[in-house]
Amino acid sequence: MLTLILILLLILFFAYFAIVNFVGPSIILKPKQKNFLVDGKMITSPLDLGLEYENVEIKSFDGTILKGWLIQADKEPIGSVIYIHGTYTNKAFGLKRAQFLKEAGYNVLLVDLRYHGESGGEFCTYGYLEKFDISDWISFLLKRFPDVPVALFGVSLGGAIAIQTAGIDNRVSAIISEGSFANFSDLVFEHQEKKFKFASRFLTKKVLENVERIAGFKIDDVAPLEYVKRVSCPILYIHGKNDETVKPWHSTVLHRYTLKGEILLVDGAGHVNSWEVLGDKYKEKIIEFLKENCNKNKAL
């Protein structure tokens, strides 16, 4: 019996050691990518949806090569929108949104975040580095389209990055944040609870300490809730009431600390699928918000 207990303790120790030092940090810092499918067909470029585009790239502040697709408005643009995708995905996931934004008079820049899609980068840092990358993309757009205001449209992780970006860059005219998290450490704890039906603050803390050690950034700095207090532009929050991936309280708390904000909590919607639930009302709300807050012709 004693031998069996010792064996079980050793197994538990090595499992703990592996999760804390290798498995957990790898899952967080190097999320596996998914392909974007429409009606079962993999989308490889905007042309697959009938959208003319331009391949663009920049070198970010730390030398990382970042890539994107630029889709120009059908007419003289009234604004530009940077679409920021979520974890595990890439710029292709924004193409259906790009369709209605383009028709409404907006240039749309769909970017691959670092360590995602075609962009470079060793790790995903959940906004710690990405906020500076998006700021560099804003510079790219303003150089290309002077005097055309820029909005950020982020889903899931992208919404969190949009808020962090606007916290350091006052050139952002408006933000649409769909399914964003307020605090990264809370998000990791909730994911642990959802995936394993068990959650430990101690285990979460130890995993995140190794994430910090490996990638060289502080988890406490990945907190949209702190950055939103510095954001002066309007923010539209969209969140599904049934979201189990990023619980609705994240957007509710962010909205509470937003200077100029509104929130749309969608009955029957889960994680970033409010469009499917709301239909055209989703598009209409976004266009209405953008035309009010990111429109170079508004004052004319």
Rank of each mutant, 00 (worst) to 15 (best):
I5D: 04
I5Q: 09
I5G: 09
L10M: 13
I11C: 08
F13C: 11
F13A: 14
F13G: 09
F14R: 05
I19K: 04
I19A: 14
F22C: 06
V23D: 04
S26I: 04
I28C: 06
L29H: 13
K30Q: 12
K30D: 02
K30W: 02
Q33A: 15
N35M: 11
N35H: 11
N35L: 10
F36Q: 04
V38L: 15
V38Q: 05
G40I: 06
M42T: 13
I43K: 03
I43M: 05
G50T: 08
E52V: 08
E52P: 04
Y53T: 05
Y53W: 09
E54R: 13
T64S: 11
L66W: 01
L66T: 00
G68V: 09
G68D: 10
D74H: 08
E76W: 05
P77C: 07
G79N: 02
I82A: 10
Y83R: 05
T87P: 02
Y88G: 02
T89R: 05
T89E: 08
K91F: 05
K91I: 06
A92H: 12
A92R: 13
G94C: 08
G94Y: 12
G94P: 10
K96A: 05
K96L: 13
K96Y: 03
Q99P: 03
F100Y: 15
L101W: 09
L101Q: 12
K102H: 10
G105N: 08
Y106C: 01
N107D: 02
N107S: 01
V108T: 09
L109I: 00
L109H: 00
V111R: 01
Y115K: 15
E118C: 03
S119E: 06
F123P: 06
Y126W: 14
Y128H: 15
F132I: 11
I134V: 15
I134G: 02
W137Q: 00
F140K: 00
R144W: 03
R144N: 07
R144M: 06
V148M: 08
P149T: 13
V150C: 09
L152P: 00
V155L: 11
A160L: 11
N170E: 15
R171F: 00
V172K: 00
E178R: 12
S180T: 13
F181I: 14
F184A: 11
D186A: 08
E190Y: 13
H191E: 10
Q192H: 10
K197T: 04
F198S: 07
R201W: 11
F202M: 14
L203I: 15
L203M: 13
L203W: 03
K205Y: 12
V207F: 08
N210K: 15
N210E: 14
A215H: 09
A215C: 07
I219N: 06
D220I: 07
D220E: 14
E226V: 02
Y227T: 09
V231C: 12
C233Q: 01
Y237V: 08
G240T: 11
K241W: 06
N242G: 07
P248S: 04
W249H: 13
L254G: 10
L259N: 14
L259C: 09
E262N: 12
L265H: 10
L265G: 12
V266N: 07
A269G: 09
A269M: 12
G270M: 09
S274L: 07
E276W: 03
K281E: 15
K281F: 08
I286D: 01
I287R: 08
I287W: 04
N295I: 02
N295G: 05
N297L: 15
N297D: 15
N297P: 03
L300H: 07
L300E: 10
